[in-house]
């Protein structure tokens, strides 16, 4: 009887079949096509490390650039790359992409080139830090020059800063010892 009531009710209601135009609401948490912001990427490799199906890998053009590669055919859209990216360079878009095809090579493979920059001190090519990170680290301070440094020179600069700033607690005692 429950079934008879249900199906007669269905007869009076419009069909539940959805038309192509009647798309379900895409939730904001939807994990769609990947986007990569080369300006933020530090080529740290975390995304490639956490990608289970190995859809992401990096290639290097020594001294010139590092390239981030993504193949959608291997992607499982788990979103771990987005979750784990330290500089939020990867984002899974919530808007649904249209169907992709390989005709023009569009959409299936993504390549994003991160250009290396010469170090302003030693000239070694390196991946620059994202602008926002740099702003946070060197907030319009005296060490503005360090912005263009490579990681090695940053370590050197840090070391130099430490050396100049170092005021030993036991400077007096030490002096005393020297005196003796």
């Amino acid at each position: 009887m429950a079934m008879l009531k249900t199906i007669l009710g269905n007869l009076l209601r419009p069909s539940r079949t959805r038309a192509p135009a009647d798309m379900p609401v895409v939730p904001p948490t939807y994990r769609g096509a990947l986007t990569h912001d080369a300006g933020r990427c530090t080529a740290c490799g975390t995304c490639a490390f956490v990608c289970a199906p190995k859809a992401i890998h990096f290639t290097q053009d020594p001294g010139i650039s590092v390239s981030w590669h993504f193949f959608i055919g291997q992607c499982s859209f788990c979103g771990l790359c987005e979750q784990n990216c330290p500089t939020r360079a990867i984002h899974l878009r919530a808007d649904v992409p249209g169907s992709t095809n390989s005709a023009g090579g569009d959409g299936l493979r993504l390549e994003s080139v991160i250009h290396l920059q010469p170090c302003t001190r030693c000239g070694a090519a390196h991946v620059p830090l994202p602008a926002a990170t740099m702003d946070a680290l060197w907030a319009a301070g005296a060490d503005e020059a360090e912005r263009g440094y490579c990681p090695d020179c940053r370590r050197w600069a840090a070391s130099a800063r430490l050396r100049t700033a170092f005021t030993p607690d036991g400077a007096v005692a030490e002096g005393g010892r020297h005196d003796r």
Binding site: I7, L8, N10, L11, R13, S15, R16, T17
Partner: peptide
């Protein structure tokens, strides 16, 4: 059948 089952048919 389709309409009774709430389908388009």
């Amino acid at each position: 059948v389709a309409r009774l089952q709430g389908r388009q048919g």
